[in-house]
């Protein structure tokens, strides 16, 4: 292929899948699947009786139905589970209405709250999801039901995309941004522009003034942290604070954000990117149990 393929893609992260070795799907009563087709990444979570049996996490392609298909295939890879075993499948995320194998779609707001409640535990009250093209702040009750939410998918500032633009501008692999943003002698002033287009111009000016790349990264990470803080402030932050989505993996933003909030985020062993798909699979499980879902 052409030049484009050879060019290093600084925004690229690793795709993955996982299977729970302790579960035998053959023993399951109800198998549900949640497929979260985000603007940047797609996940499929396969649940057996409300427990995670397998999942996948990959980059979304240009076509939503195909991305959903690929995510499900990767999730089922090496499990020997036939697709026909799935009792109910729910699509969520940006491309949720384009998930061909879904029996129903539910918004990412509901799914993220439900999923975070599952992967972080019932103490979760505030969920922040920083996705590729949006940022969601959700308050929920002890059952994982949404009580207050907002979603910003209009503006790239405070989303994974904003960070990708910077990683690309500064030629730093996106997975290294967090670490490198702390390799500075002194914490710099945050980038003052919120708009990513203007922040890019500002960053170019800083580099020209002699700032090191890591300093510019630090300045952007802290601007982004502050930006997300002002967004989440709107719904109010309660303890039991969980951060999901791809950007949860970026220490540079998260540590600066939580310092400003003054609430420590909860920890989980799970891949935080699967929250939406896990929530979708759980809704599927609940619907089947209530007799509202299909049962073959």
């Amino acid at each position: 292929m052409g030049e484009e393929e050879k060019k290093q893609e600084y925004w690229r992260w690793t795709e993955s899948n996982w299977k729970n070795p302790d579960i035998k799907w053959e023993d399951a009563k109800i198998v549900t699947v949640g497929i979260d087709v985000g603007s940047v990444s797609s996940q499929a979570v396969v649940m057996t009786d409300g427990q995670v049996y397998a999942y996948s996490n990959m980059r979304t392609g240009s076509d939503s139905p195909e991305s959903a298909r690929n995510a499900l295939n990767l999730g089922l890879e090496g499990t020997s589970m036939p697709e026909s075993r799935i009792d109910y499948c729910i699509g969520t995320g940006y491309g949720r209405v384009n998930v061909p194998m879904a029996d129903r779609s539910i918004t990412e707001i509901a799914c993220h709250a439900r999923g975070a409640h599952f992967i972080y535990g019932p103490e979760v009250r505030t969920v922040l999801d920083i996705g590729g093209q949006d940022c969601k702040a959700i308050r929920c009750d002890e059952k994982g039901k949404v009580t207050n939410f907002l979603m910003n998918d209009k503006c790239a500032a405070g989303t994974g995309r904003g960070m990708e633009v910077f990683a690309d501008l500064l030629s730093v692999p996106i997975v290294d941004v967090g670490e490198r943003s702390f390799e500075v002698k002194e914490e710099p002033e945050p980038v003052s522009s919120i708009c990513v287009v203007y922040a890019k111009t500002e960053a170019t000016g800083l580099l020209r003034k002699g700032w090191a790349v890591n300093e510019v990264l630090a300045a952007y990470c802290s601007a982004m942290g502050h930006r997300i803080f002002t967004l989440i402030e709107r719904i109010g932050i309660e303890k039991g604070f969980a951060i999901t989505g791809g950007l949860a993996k970026n220490r540079g933003v998260i540590e600066r954000l939580t310092k400003e909030i003054g609430v420590e985020p909860m920890h989980t062993e799970w891949d935080t990117q699967i929250a939406g798909a896990a929530g979708a699979a759980l809704f599927g499980y609940a619907l089947v149990q209530k007799g509202k879902g299909r049962r073959k």
């Binding site: 039901k145 949404v146 009580t147 207050n148 939410f149 907002l150 979603m151 910003n152 998918d153 209009k154 503006c155 500032a157 405070g158 522009s193 919120i194 708009c195 203007y198 002002t230 967004l231 709107r234 719904i235």
Partner: peptide, 16 residues
């Protein structure tokens, strides 16, 4: 549930 529709951008907050 309080559903906040809208966004925040560089120019301000716009939510219903």
């Amino acid at each position: 549930m309080i559903a906040n529709y809208g966004y925040k951008d560089g120019s301000g907050d716009y939510f219903i």
